[in-house]
Simulated assay, not measured.
Amino acid sequence: MHSPSEDHMCVVMRILRYLKVTPGKGLMFCKYGHTDVEGYTNADWAVVSRSSAEAEYHGMAQGVCELLWLRRFLRDLGFGPQKPMNLYCDNKAAIAIAHNPVQHDRTKHVEVDRYFVKEKLDAEIISFPFISSEYQLTDVLMKAVSTMVFLNSLDKLGMCDIFAPI
């Protein structure tokens, strides 16, 4: 915002074109009778780190913060999650770091997140199931994907067209 460029304007125009041709797209929230909270985490190389595992681990810690906020919000509304919240990650090394404190000795740059994530994991507030990259829903928000992957991700995210015939 402080120094817009021609590239930024191109991205804005692309977003506006997408919004123009998809006026009926939106999220449909359905009542399923549960208050399970799940999240997806993925990191890009914008995070300063020595390895992709460190970047993913930092992303996991940030995801835990966001899920904890949602958990508190739901509790304030009277709907507290009854089981650990799943934070799906497609990096097995980052999941191993979260579960095994010995692994932390190899990653000196995640020291700040180390105790925070381990505390929530030990308290069974959070869990980190592995998800393969093909099912990673955050990719559609972070990188260029094929049209097929994009449309598939919209379905998985619960996007629907309110003008489509039922």
Rank of each mutant, 00 (worst) to 15 (best):
P4G: 10
S5M: 13
D7M: 08
R14N: 11
Y18S: 09
L19K: 11
L19P: 04
L19G: 06
K20D: 12
V21Y: 09
T22Y: 11
P23S: 08
K25V: 02
G26P: 01
C30M: 14
G33D: 04
H34C: 11
T35H: 07
E38N: 12
Y40H: 06
T41D: 00
N42F: 00
D44I: 06
D44W: 05
W45Q: 08
A46S: 06
V47S: 10
S49Y: 02
S52K: 07
S52G: 09
A53H: 01
E54S: 06
E56G: 06
A61R: 00
G63S: 04
E66I: 05
E66R: 10
L68K: 04
L68P: 02
L70T: 12
F73V: 06
L74C: 05
L74K: 04
R75H: 07
D76Y: 08
D76S: 12
G80D: 05
G80R: 14
Q82H: 08
K83F: 15
K83Y: 11
P84Y: 11
M85R: 01
C89F: 06
D90T: 04
A93I: 14
A93M: 10
A94D: 05
A96C: 14
A98Q: 00
N100G: 14
P101S: 09
P101F: 03
V102Q: 11
D105C: 14
R106Q: 08
V110Q: 03
E111L: 09
V112E: 06
E119T: 15
K120N: 12
L121D: 02
L121R: 05
A123V: 03
E124I: 09
I125Y: 04
I126A: 05
F128D: 01
P129N: 13
P129I: 12
I131Q: 01
S133W: 15
E134S: 10
Q136E: 06
L137P: 03
M142A: 12
V145W: 02
T147P: 04
V149C: 04
F150S: 02
S153L: 10
L154W: 03
D155G: 13
M159T: 11
I162T: 07
F163Y: 15
A164C: 14
